[in-house]
């Protein structure tokens, strides 16, 4: 399976994502520069963490206009798997590929720590290898990760079983403890925690691997 990892000039977990997929899962990775208009031949796309264009305005506000996002939109519309992590989630939300918004953490500070996640659904290409009976230890590292949406959207997300992960102990004020969500077509997921940083025993947890393994399983099945 070939993963495309988008590289914005301010991406800083692009290498982490590539390392997890390539070195730990043994899959192929193409790094895709932010001004390229095409994704080339990839089976899935990862929008990694970081500060795409500095994010001095609003996280993801500028990134949504970058040439590569046109290609990502097209890829997603064609049913391709798109995973946005942290800043990638913020960009997907800004770009309208996922509903809601990510606002300043309750407490107004950047938080980096391991948190426990509980899968909200296993009916998705990103969580099909997960178990709802288990919690997953994955770190967060963000200042603007409080998930926010109007009541109708939240109800809809839950009614359509589109919440992929919930915080066991809510660190940032996210409504309904939401840590990750799907689009309606279930091929685009955004999540604030960093599965790529919990991918081997050396990091203290391998629980993040389940996301990439799910994508792999889905691709093999397809």
């Amino acid at each position: 399976m070939t993963f495309g990892v988008i590289v914005f000039p301010g991406s800083n977990r692009d290498h982490d994502a590539a390392y997890a997929v390539e070195k730990i899962l043994g899959q192929k990775v193409n790094l895709i520069w932010h001004d390229s208009a095409s994704l080339g031949s990839v089976d899935a796309v990862i929008l990694p963490g970081g500060f795409a264009y500095g994010d001095y305005l609003r996280c993801g506000a500028i990134a949504k206009f970058s040439p590569v996002m046109m290609a990502v939109r097209k890829f997603a519309a064609g049913g391709g798997l798109v995973l946005g992590i942290c800043n990638g989630f913020q960009i997907l939300v800004e770009a309208g590929l996922l509903p809601g918004a990510l606002i300043r953490n309750r407490g107004l500070r950047f938080i980096c720590r391991n948190v426990q996640l509980r899968p909200g659904t296993t009916n998705s290409p990103f969580t099909c290898a997960a178990s709802k009976e288990k919690t997953y230890c994955v770190p967060i590292a963000h200042g603007e990760g409080c998930y926010f949406a109007d009541q109708r959207t939240l109800d809809e997300l839950e009614a359509e079983d589109r919440v992929t992960f919930r915080y066991v102990e809510n660190p940032n004020g996210s409504l309904r403890d939401i840590a990750g969500i799907l689009n309606r077509e279930r091929n685009v997921m955004g999540m604030m925690p960093h599965p790529e940083d919990a991918a081997e025993p050396l990091m203290g947890s391998c629980d993040g691997l389940v996301v990439f393994q799910s994508m792999l399983t889905t691709a093999v099945r397809a």
């Binding site: 390392y19 963490g49 950047f110 938080i111 980096c112």
Partner: peptide, 17 residues
Amino acid sequence: KSWLWEQYDYLVRSSTV
């Protein structure tokens, strides 16, 4: 000192043992 260091991203680069 976790109040202080949780404000720092100490995990980026996935190399923090």
